[in-house]
């Protein structure tokens, strides 16, 4: 999922300065899992905004606001209410915010679309409702087959491909002693799998052109460009 964290309320108010009537769009996908933008969080923030004198025109939370197939059927019928809003506030990832904007454009409407969240990465939930961790950078050239299923591009703070840096100590990372050194994890895993010799292979410089943004995925063709 895409991890999200709430922006400070003051920052949200600053973004909504000058806008009285607010339409609120959440996301009952990833943001719901992160407890930042599901229906419940939208309702809670709507109440807070009302105490600040804002008028909430509508609340909606598509199942996946980042997906036109899910967002449009929910938002299209709200066209009049969107039109009556001074601005939309989206509680979703950066993608959800931009899809919401796109939907308004397809409806022929031009109004500000603001966000109440910060997107913090491709996250995997390890402890539901509590912890999600970043394990994948979507680099476009997955090497998990060679690293025991542990990604050094993401889990090593320096993204090193040929082994640990000198800053690793007692299996922990120099950047954060609470964090495991990715390369010690990989090494231990490869030892356990009996594949440690595979780590002796020189890994050449990564082809970052495969991660050059912005990428487009042509779903039917399976092509990325």
């Amino acid at each position: 999922m895409i991890g999200t964290a709430k922006k400070p309320f003051d920052e949200i108010l600053a973004a909504l300065k000058g806008f009285q009537k607010i339409g609120m769009v959440g996301c009952d996908g990833c943001a719901k899992v992160c407890l930042t933008g599901g229906s419940d969080e939208v309702a809670a923030l709507a109440q807070e905004l009302k105490t600040q004198g804002k008028e909430i025109v509508f609340e909606a939370s598509p199942e996946r606001t980042c997906n036109m197939a899910k967002a449009k059927p929910v938002l299209d019928p709200l066209k009049d209410k969107i039109q009556a809003s001074d601005a939309l506030l989206v509680l979703g990832c950066g993608g959800a915010v931009q899809i919401a904007r796109y939907v308004t454009e397809t409806l022929g409407l031009t109004l500000p679309v603001k966000t109440g969240l910060n997107s913090v990465g491709h996250m995997d939930t390890t402890v539901p409702g509590q912890i999600a961790i970043e394990q994948c950078q979507e680099c476009g050239d997955c090497i998990l087959n060679d690293t025991g299923g542990i990604c050094p591009v993401t889990k090593c703070a320096k993204g090193l491909l040929n082994g640990p840096c000198g800053g690793s100590e007692d299996g922990k990372c120099e950047v954060d002693p609470a964090r495991d050194c990715a390369w010690v994890l990989i090494y231990n895993r490869m030892v356990a799998l009996g594949e440690v010799d595979n780590l002796k292979k020189f890994v050449g410089a990564k082809d970052y052109s495969k991660a050059a943004k912005p990428r487009t995925l042509y779903i039917k063709e399976g092509r990325v460009a």
């Binding site: 491909l161 082994g163 120099e174 950047v175």
Partner: peptide, 22 residues
Amino acid sequence: GDHLKMGDHPTGKGVFDIDSVQ
């Protein structure tokens, strides 16, 4: 190279395009 977080510009973007072996 030491990570940026260790130094006096911790808000910078580390490059680490390639590693020391490469």
